[in-house]
Structure formats: C-alpha cells, structure tokens
Design a protein around this nucleic acid. Sequence first.
DNA 1: CCGGGCCCCTGGATGC
DNA 2: TGCATCCAGGGGCCCG
Length: 270
Amino acid sequence: MPELPEVESVRRQLEPELRGRRVVAVWADRQRRFHQVERLAGHTVEAVGRRGKFLVCPLDGGLELVMHLGMTGVLGIRRAGLDGEAAPYTRARLSLDDGRELTFQDVRRFGGLAVVEAGAYGTVLPALARLGPEPLSDAFDPARFARDLAATRAPVKPYLLSQRPVAGVGNIYADEALWLARIHPASRRVGRARALLLHAAIREVLAQAIEREGTTFRDYRMLNGESGRNATFLTAYGQAGRPCPRCGTPLRKITLGGRGTTFCPTCQRH
DNA sequence: CCGGGCCCCTGGATGC
DNA sequence: TGCATCCAGGGGCCCG
C-alpha cells in the first residue's frame, strides 16, 4: 500500500511525536521481518527520516530503527496501559518515556522493523542498501535517469518498481507517471526525450500526492488514523474501463511483472 | 549481474 | 448461503 507519498505523510506526523522520546520497553511478535527490535529498549529517537518507502530513525548510541510498512502496515500512537481492546493485527508495541506507545499493525505481515548499526544495511536490509536516488532531491538527476533507462532491457514499469533508477515509486504512482508521460508501461525502449518527460512526471505525481497526504484505498492511514485525499485524483491506477482523460479511449488493464497495470492503449506508446 | 516467475501472508470482493 | 477463485499499495529468492 504505502509508497513514497504515504510514507512521507506518516513521517511528517510521526517526527514531532517520536523525536526526543526514549523507548522504555518493546513487545514484538515473532515474525521473520523483525530484526533485533528488542535492542530498542533504553534508546532515544533522535529524528524520523525517510528513504524511499523506508522510515529511518537515528537513535542514540549509533543505532538506527528502520521501519517498512509493506502493504498493510499502519503506525499509531496511543496512551499505554488502558489497552482495553488491543487493536487487531498489532505486531509490535514500543513503550515510550511519556506514557504513550507506538503501535505497528500489519494484517499481511509484509512490513518489518529492524534495528541496525547506523547505515549498516547490507545483509539485513539489502533493498535499502541499494536504493536508487530520492525522487524529490537533486540526487535524482535527469541525465543519469535517462542513461539508466537506456541501459536496461526490462519493461519500463517493472524497472521503476525495482527501486533502482529511483526510490519510492510503487504500483500506483508508476501507472500515474507513465500515463502522464505518455509511455507504454511495457516499453523496453525509452529514449532520452521520453526519459526526461518521465523524470518530470514522477516528480509531479509524487509531489501532488504528498500535498494530498497520500492515496487511501483500504488500509493506508496516517498516524492520526485519517485517510489520504489523493484517491479521487488518480487518472490511471484503478481506472480500467473509464475513458482516458486525454483521448477518451477506455483505459486497459494488463498484468506486468506480476502487478496489475492500467494504461491508455492509444496515447501511451511503446 | 540481469530479468522473470513464484513465494511470503491475510482478508475482501466476486463468481458459481 | 457456502465455497472457490482472484486480487491487493510491499520485497525476497531462485533459476536460467
């Protein structure tokens, strides 16, 4: 569920709540995508950052807490103790030194929490270690992006989803950006001119989605439990059968790299 | 190293 | 109504 705009929206609410707080106790479900979460106890959260779809929180003592929401992860902060009815699907709870707790709910268990030495992502978090540039920073260089697209032989959409040419683009915003740039999602030939259009389109759809605090279909919620407001603005993702806003052709849905993919068969070209 | 296919989990929507 | 099937915003792993 959560792509860069959703994770960024969570981060913006989480940072003022968590910064400077010390974790006094940890409870975590036993599951494969948790790594040394118990090391959190006694450490203070110094900041709440983000890389791609990862939340990266520096701790005192040279550690980092890395959180990934997977498809259905939801973070919340609540008063601890009166856990009358524990929220369903709670997989982890971090008790804080102000009497509240940070909860991690995750129906499908695709999300994860890891505590690592700062920056040492190698074996525990390989996807974070080899993540592409942040799309809204100067590190996302248009010329470099064009060279990357020219060098791969994969279809452009699965290549975007690999997180290598750029970080944080998932299934929704890949469809949206490719529609905006008029590029067929299965295209294996994206030349320089179209790569520059796609570069701009990615920035545009992500920035717009952040302004609207993300896209909610079912699971995604911000820290305060509210939905994002971007869903009604989508032009491609989830709109199969509806007319293309540019040319009126019914949008078509295919499967690409195992993911549902919606595009305009007329104005998105190979 | 690359790209493609399947796997990990669970629940909701849809179809027969 | 009951059961089967498909689908879902994530990444990992193995194979050729």
